[in-house]
Each structure stands twice: as C-alpha cells, then as structure tokens.
Amino acid sequence: MSQVPAELKYVDTHEWLRREDDGTITIGITDHAQELLGDVVYVDLPAVGSRFNRGDTAGVVESVKAASDVYVPIEGEVVAVNQDLVDAPEIANTAPYAQAWFFRIKPADAADYDGLMTADAYKALIGA
C-alpha cells in the first residue's frame, strides 16, 4: 500500500508538493507513482532558472518498465534541482518523500499551493 504523508499536497499526475519555510515549493513523485514505474533508472530534471506554467512538463523519470513525464503542478521558477537524484535515481524507489525530491520552485502565486489535493483526496484518487 502506498504511503501518502498527510502534510503534503498532491496532484492527479502523481506529484507531491511541500511548502518550505522560505516559501519555495519542493516537488517529487509519489510513492504510488514509483510503485507503478518500478525500478527507476534515470531522471532528467529542469535547469535552475527555468520558468514553467501549471501543467508543463519539467522532466522525465525512466524505469525498467516505462518513461513518464514529470509535471509542474503550479506556475513558478525552478530555484533548485536534486543532483543526488540524478546521480542515484534509484532513491526515487526507496525514499520518494525524503531524499528523492526532484526540484524546488518559487511559485508565481503562493496561494496556488493551498488549492491542491489533500492527502485524503489523493488516497481516494489512487484507491488507498
């Protein structure tokens, strides 16, 4: 059964989001997503300074089963990427909510975060 931490926000494309103390938003893929993908072998992340609109593709995660786009759930500018994940993509399978974050963005509108899916809503979506 997939882990769905209550303190995070979620979107139906299976990314999770966490608001940091400095107002940036950390984004990664959910435990459910990594389970569906299987063994992650490659991650392509956006460049720092890239700007994205909500729903844009910001990267790719590849596994032994498939490749999947990583989407940006809220508009903003990338301020950090997780180089550790690029160097060791398999951590997406073992620590999807901790070490395996993908990137951080500075949101164009901080209020966009509040309207995202709660853990309970995401659990209902995935049938957990």
Rank of each mutant, 00 (worst) to 15 (best):
L125V: 11
E62G: 04
D84G: 12
P46D: 08
L36C: 13
M117T: 10
A66V: 13
F102R: 00
V60H: 09
D56V: 00
E35H: 13
A67K: 07
S68G: 11
A67G: 13
S2G: 06
L17M: 14
D114A: 14
N53R: 12
Y71F: 15
K123P: 11
E15N: 06
K65Q: 07
Y97N: 07
A66H: 11
P89N: 10
P89W: 03
V72C: 13
E77P: 04
V48W: 03
K65C: 08
V61S: 02
D22Q: 03
A124Y: 11
T13L: 08
K65W: 08
D12M: 05
A67Q: 10
D39G: 02
D84S: 15
V86Y: 11
Y97S: 01
E62T: 02
A58S: 12
A119F: 06
G38L: 04
P96V: 02
E90Q: 14
A66G: 08
D120A: 15
T94L: 08
A95G: 11
I74Y: 10
S68E: 11
M1C: 00
E62Y: 02
R19K: 15
A111M: 06
E35S: 13
V72G: 04
A88L: 07
V43K: 03
V64S: 10
Y122L: 05
S63F: 04
D56S: 07
Q3N: 13
F103R: 10
I105Q: 02
E77H: 05
G127F: 11
I74Q: 08
V48Y: 06
P89I: 01
G76Y: 11
E90R: 12
A80R: 14
E7K: 14
G28E: 01
D12H: 12
P46G: 05
E77A: 09
V60S: 11
N82A: 07
G59R: 04
V61K: 02
G23E: 10
W16R: 09
V70A: 10
G115I: 00
G23W: 10
N82V: 02
D39S: 01
V86I: 15
I25N: 02
V86S: 12
D84W: 07
E20S: 05
D21S: 15
A88S: 12
N53F: 00
R51H: 14
G49C: 00
S50F: 09
A88T: 13
E7Y: 13
S2W: 03
T57F: 05
N82G: 09
R104M: 07
D87R: 12
A124V: 10
N53S: 14
Y113N: 06
D112F: 02
L37M: 15
R54K: 13
S2A: 15
I29M: 07
Q34Y: 01
P96A: 01
Y122I: 00
A33C: 12
A58G: 15
D84A: 14
G55K: 07
L37S: 02
N93F: 06
V41S: 04
A66T: 15
G49F: 06
A95H: 14
I91L: 03
A58N: 09
F103A: 13
D22T: 03
Q83R: 15
I27N: 04
V61F: 06
F102S: 11
A121K: 13
E75W: 00
I27Y: 02
G23V: 01
V61P: 09
E7W: 03
A47S: 14
L45M: 08
F102W: 01
G59K: 02
H32F: 15
D56I: 01
K9W: 05
